[in-house]
């Protein structure tokens, strides 16, 4: 068998298959790249299969695709309970203990994960029109993922979560002060441990990926970031447009754009559906940020 490197998951793959058996990306298509260098992640084809150990995952549907798992007896996956679409009665489901329940509750994160062990079938889906993104991970590889985008991972992928270093506070008085976390309060970090594994995400809208060179920077909408290599650094960026005298009803200090600045090297992915940052009061303090005033 000739091998080639899948241009999306960067793993050795099978050119004889219509889709990459590791990430599901179509093999027989040309890469779609924007003028500025964003590579469009092709949607996983309907009914494409991904191999994970002795088990496999089949992606069904195109609008809100579902990931259907056929689990071998020795394999297991974990996921948040609210993405479970259906399961066969014989699939063993158990709770996966999580640390920091109170903090997760405050951050709106799921409090429990569910482990599903084979043999058996089950399917997972999220509730947004969009794409499933499959990320095969090699031993030692780590990926940061925006909260609420995780769909499932194989049992040999370690999951941890850390506070987001991107935040700002608004309000003048102690009564109306409010903390804002434009990327979410926490971020998920997944790492492959002893063996390769598979991480599945669900992204609303379309997905675009880009490789940042050493020191290359990029400004993006904070909530559009889907995942990044952990080598990519990020920080808040505040941009204040020039006041043309039209914003007399508000302080020029509250007329601004909230960005996240990314620094290479590494791979980043954005989703085309995002929640714009709230346009509220002036920022009184914030996490480390770069600033630009026009």
């Amino acid at each position: 068998m000739n091998t080639y490197i899948c241009r999306y998951c960067r793993q050795p793959s099978d050119p004889g298959s219509p889709t990459c058996p590791l990430c599901g990306a179509p093999v027989d298509i040309r890469s779609v790249v924007s003028d500025s260098g964003w590579v469009e992640q092709p949607p996983i084809r309907d009914m494409a299969r991904l191999q994970l150990g002795q088990s496999h995952c089949q992606v069904a549907g195109t609008t809100v695709p579902a990931a259907e798992f056929t689990l071998a007896p020795e394999d297991w996956i974990y996921f948040s309970h609210h993405v479970l679409l259906w399961t066969e009665p014989q699939t063993r489901l158990t709770n996966m203990p999580m640390k920091g329940a109170w903090n997760r509750k405050m951050a709106g994160l799921p409090l429990i994960m569910v482990e599903a062990r084979g043999p058996g079938h089950l399917a997972l889906s999220d509730n947004h029109a969009g794409e499933i993104v499959a990320l095969p991970m090699q031993h030692g590889q780590q990926i940061w993922v925006r909260e609420h985008r995780f769909l499932a991972a194989t049992g040999n992928i370690k999951y941890d979560w850390y506070p987001s270093d991107v935040w700002y506070e608004t309000g003048q008085d102690s009564d109306d002060r409010e903390m804002h976390y434009p990327m979410g309060r926490y971020g998920d970090v997944f790492g492959a441990q002893a063996a390769p594994g598979l991480l599945l995400l669900h992204a609303p809208g379309n997905v675009f990926i880009r490789d940042l060179r050493q020191g290359e920077t990029l400004l993006i909408q904070p909530s559009s970031l889907l995942y990044r290599d952990v080598t990519v650094r990020m920080a808040l960026h505040l941009e204040y447009p020039r006041n043309q005298g039209l914003s007399f009803w508000r302080s020029s200090w509250s007329y601004r754009s909230i960005w996240v600045r990314l620094w290479g090297p590494g791979r980043v992915a954005v989703q085309s559906v995002y929640e714009p940052a709230e346009d509220t009061e002036a920022i009184r303090r914030h996490s480390y940020a770069t600033t630009h005033r026009w």
Binding site: A60, T63, V64, H81, L85, P89, L93, N95, K105, D126
Partner: peptide, 29 residues
């Protein structure tokens, strides 16, 4: 289900469908 969800650890329920017949599901809900 043999699972507990939420801070209060309440139970998780699924709909058990028993044949014969067709069942249709939607992936967004």
């Amino acid at each position: 289900m043999p699972l507990k969800t939420g801070l209060l650890r309440h139970g998780m329920y699924l709909a058990e469908m028993t044949g014969p017949g067709r069942v249709g599901i939607q992936s967004m809900y």
